[in-house]
Amino acid sequence: MSTPAPRTGGMARAAAPWLLLLPAFALMTYAFILPIGSFLEYGFYRFERGRLIQDFTFATYRRFLFDPYYHAVILDTLKVAAIVTTIALAVGYPLAYGLWRLQSPALQRWFGLIIFSPVLVSVVVRSYGWTVLLADQGAVNWALMRAGLIGEPLELVYNLTGVVISLSHVFLPFVVFPIYAAMTRLDPSLREAAMDLGAGWWTTFRRVTLPLTLPGIVAAAQIAFTLALGALVTPALLGGGRVLVLPLQVYRATSEINWPFAAVGGLALLLMALVAVVLSNRLLRYAEP
């Protein structure tokens, strides 16, 4: 007795998601897939005496893979990203927790805005701000000396420390909000259930809140890590020439029109980011209830 659903409507409904995805596909093809194709192509060219030579060779790849200098660069890049991610998480998680536990929604909005504020400031302005704060005569060193914690000013800027501080600062919102979102999705009665079963604050946190917010942590780490991998301006302005991360090398190569090296370096960055994403997605599946 049941009549089949009208076909035409069904067809249109099935096509609708694809139609909506079309602009995104077009953009991706034009701005991502095509450039990657030409990247691959340029990577096999040669660069000699300031000139691009269009023949097929693995020379650039070979240099990139076997030259100890580039090993050091890649390792440094990964190290900076890892340290920044760790610090951003270490600062961001308690911040997200505090934001979540705040009783007043008005306060929550204000603190949310403050946490978001680094993103509102241009990277150049922010970097100069940090140079001023972290300089030998800057506010941070002054305060530490006044407190008697150190005798001489610490070298906080124009090195790895300055880069790490500034990057952790600006990635904070990208870390706090995914974690905060995971926390607000928690059923509040779960924490009550844990306490009802005899768990104090710490046990409740360790055995209920933390495991259930792990997906938020993984998402946050993924964002911070991939953003840190690609950071260019901050290492350039605050690294004092001592933080030679891969994006800087790629940037320098492009300004020398060394397209083969820029292409290979760019692909290496992409690969590292992809590995990070795949690994964290693995973790995420593991963390699922």
Binding site: D187, S189, L190, E192, A193, D196, V208, P211, L212, P289
Partner: peptide, 11 residues
């Protein structure tokens, strides 16, 4: 306590 929606730990 037995909670209204049971509040079992999903993980």
């Amino acid at each position: 306590m037995v909670f209204q929606r049971w509040a079992l730990f999903p993980h």
